[in-house]
Amino acid sequence: MACQTGIRANAALRNALNLGKQAKLRLIKIVVNNEEMTPNYEFAGTANWRDDWKACLPECVDAYEPCFILFRLNTITEWVLITFVDDRAPVREKMLLAATCATFKSEFGQCYIEHEKHVTDRKDLTLTAFESWLKAKTELGPMSEVERELHNAQQERAAIAHAGPQHLKGVAFPVDRNAEEALKKLAHQQLSFVQLSVDTLNEAIKLESTLESLEPSALASKVPRDKPRYTFYNFDHTWEGVPQKCTLFIYSLPSSGSSIKERMLYSSCKGPFLGAAQNQYGVVITNKMEVDARDDLSEKALLEVIHPLPVEAPKQFSRPAPPRAGPRRITKV
């Protein structure tokens, strides 16, 4: 591994990388200039990544200027990192770029990079050349049963890694307008039931269904047990003679029936989404539940979550009374 130079990303590059992670940029070209990594070219792009590729590459690349190119295919976790180093470029610049590669990937986040490609000729940056390389990379040759199992395990690990950085608190997906309106109505007690889903393709929180009133006995039938969902339920009830209003958040995550990436995204989005629901839309969550296909969602189960039984304090062990004082007893054998 090349020795790292200590060259870091400047403020402009950090801003560009953040925009890229929000899917606001399609392409970012990075060069090493004045002992720092800086963006040299940015392209917002359209909805079609192939048209964007043909519009930018290889025209934005200079044969005498080594650079990193980040190109987003579809989602925020499908970035291609291209290291372009032409043979005609100055030796010092080629060495600087090679020694900065690990630092750059650390700055951007390895989990966002789906493919890496090293290019030494601008001809290899055409869309036709890239698609041929990508096809050859993704096609599988003949494999034994053991090799197939190892490959499937590797794919599952990659799906978990690309669902989002594990050290971060969560992934904040935007909430669509219908879901925002439903959450505001829920906060003002105009709705009793609001259910939302994570659109993994468009990376957004979307509204699934709403109800103005829902009896507790019918709640279980409204929560699907074969796919993950976020559910809010305004539970009006009486406890010990006192009417009470509670807002429950139910996170349903089935053990089967959904992909690993889908389950990871639901888990990663939950924290930021709940923060937005409470801080931006005014939802006051009194209790949270996490259920799978086997858990009970009856009225009794809801009451046990809201009003748990008091836990009895452990009883202290009472020592036996010491023997009474008196003359020493002699036991005859």
Rank of each mutant, 00 (worst) to 15 (best):
W79L: 15
W79P: 04
W79V: 12
V80Q: 07
V80S: 05
F84Y: 15
F84K: 10
F84W: 13
V85P: 04
V85M: 14
V85I: 11
V85N: 06
V85T: 13
D86N: 13
D86S: 14
D87G: 03
D87K: 14
R88F: 02
R88C: 14
A89F: 00
A89V: 00
P90L: 00
P90K: 00
V91K: 08
V91W: 06
V91R: 11
R92W: 00
R92S: 00
E93P: 00
E93F: 00
E93N: 04
K94Q: 13
M95P: 02
M95S: 01
L96Q: 13
A98G: 13
A99S: 15
A99N: 12
A99D: 15
A99R: 09
T100D: 10
T100L: 08
T100I: 06
T100F: 02
C101L: 09
C101W: 03
A102I: 02
T103F: 05
F104I: 10
F104D: 02
K105I: 05
K105W: 02
S106P: 04
S106F: 03
S106Q: 10
E107C: 14
F108L: 14
F108Q: 02
G109K: 09
Y112K: 11
Y112F: 15
I113F: 07
E114T: 02
E114H: 15
H115G: 04
H115R: 15
H115M: 12
K117V: 12
K117Q: 03
H118Y: 04
V119C: 12
V119T: 07
V119S: 14
T120I: 04
T120P: 01
T120H: 11
D121H: 04
D121V: 09
D121T: 09
R122K: 11
K123F: 13
K123D: 11
D124R: 03
D124K: 04
D124N: 08
L125A: 08
L125G: 07
L125H: 04
T126G: 15
T126I: 09
T126C: 13
T128W: 01
T128H: 07
T128I: 06
A129N: 05
A129P: 02
F130Q: 02
F130L: 15
F130S: 04
E131S: 12
S132R: 13
K135P: 03
K135C: 12
K137C: 11
K137H: 13
T138P: 12
T138A: 14
L140F: 06
G141Y: 07
G141Q: 08
G141A: 15
G141R: 07
G141I: 12
M143G: 05
M143W: 02
M143L: 15
S144N: 06
S144W: 05
